[in-house]
Design a protein around this nucleic acid. Structure first.
Lengths: 145, 145
DNA sequence: CTCAGTGCAAAGGATTTGCATGCCG
DNA sequence: CGGCATGCAAATCCTTTGCACTGAG
C-alpha cells in the first residue's frame, strides 16, 4: 500500500517528465503520514533545513502531476493533501477561529446524493464537474470551550 | 426586499458602531446585483475611481458586521458575496481552468442530508459546525467546449 | 469638536521566479 | 553531455496598514 503510493507517484511524475526525487518523496511521505492537510510551514518544520522555494516548487510539480491537491481556506496558508484517488474520499472540518483543518467522512447515502447533484448540475448547466468539496465550517473543540 | 437589504445592512453596521456610507452601500449594491461572487478587481471596475484600499477596508468591515462573506478559491483573488441570510442558501460551481465561480442550488433532500451530517459530526467530534460549504469543482461551459 | 471614513502611498507577507550550480540518466 | 532539480536571493502581487485630511453628528 505504501509501496504502491510511491510507485504511483513516481509514475505520475514520469508521465509529466519529472523525477521522483528524495525531497519530493519526503513530501509525499509527510502528507501520507498526517491525518489532515499540512501547511508549508508544517512541512518545512518536519524537514529541518529544507528550503522554502524548493518545497513550493516541488508541491507545484506534485500538484500538476496529480499526486497532491492544494486547499485554500480563509487563513493565510495554503494546505496540501494527497490526491483523492491516493487516499480515501473525505471532507474537511474547518475551524473558523484558528484555521485548523481536520478530515471526516460522510455516510454513503450522502455521497450518493452528492453524486446525483453533480450529474444533474452538469446536464443542466454545461458545467462538467470533476469532483465535489464539502466542508463544515465552525469551531473546533479546542477553540470552542 | 431591496429596501430591507439596505436597512438590514445599516442595522448590522450600526451594531458594530460603523456607518452605512455611500461607498459601502455601493458595494452591497454591486454584490446584490451580480448572480455570482465578485472579485475586488470586478468591483473596482464597476465603480470607476474607487480606491482599492477603501474597498478592501469596507469589505472587511462589511464582513465583520456579517453583511458579506469572503470566499477563497484556488485562484489569486478573494471573492465576496452577500451573507447567506441576506440571500438564499446556495452553493458554488468553481471552474478549475479560469477560476470563475457561479452559483447553484441543491435539492432540498440533499440539504436535509447535509444538515443531518452536520449534526452527526458535531455530536461525535466536539466540532461545532456553523454552516457548510458544498462546491463542485470542474470545467465551466466556456472553458470546456 | 470628536471620531469614523477616505485616499494616497508605503509596508507586509505568502508565494514565485532568476540564476548559477549540482546531479540523474 | 543535456536537462531537470536545487538553493539562495530577489522579485511579485494581492492585501493590509500608516498617516493626514475630510465629513457626518
Amino acid at each position: 500500500m505504501t509501496l504502491d503510493l510511491h510507485e504511483t507517484a513516481a509514475a505520475r511524475l514520469r508521465s509529466v517528465n519529472q523525477r521522483y526525487t528524495a525531497s519530493r518523496r519526503a513530501l509525499v511521505e509527510v502528507l501520507s503520514a498526517g491525518s489532515a492537510p499540512s501547511t508549508i510551514p508544517e512541512m518545512l518544520a518536519s524537514r529541518p533545513g529544507a528550503p522554502q522555494s524548493s518545497t513550493y516548487r516541488n508541491l507545484a510539480v506534485l500538484e500538476q502531476a496529480g499526486v497532491v491537491r492544494r486547499l485554500v481556506t480563509n487563513d493565510a496558508f495554503a494546505r496540501f493533501e494527497l490526491a483523492e484517488d491516493l487516499t480515501e474520499h473525505h471532507h474537511h472540518l474547518v475551524c473558523s477561529v484558528c484555521g485548523a483543518v481536520d478530515d471526516f467522512s460522510a455516510p454513503p447515502a450522502v455521497e450518493r446524493s452528492l453524486a446525483r447533484v453533480m450529474a444533474d448540475v452538469a446536464s443542466s448547466s454545461g458545467f462538467r464537474a470533476e469532483y465535489h468539496r464539502l466542508d463544515l465550517i465552525g469551531t473546533c473543540a479546542r477553540c470552542d470551550r
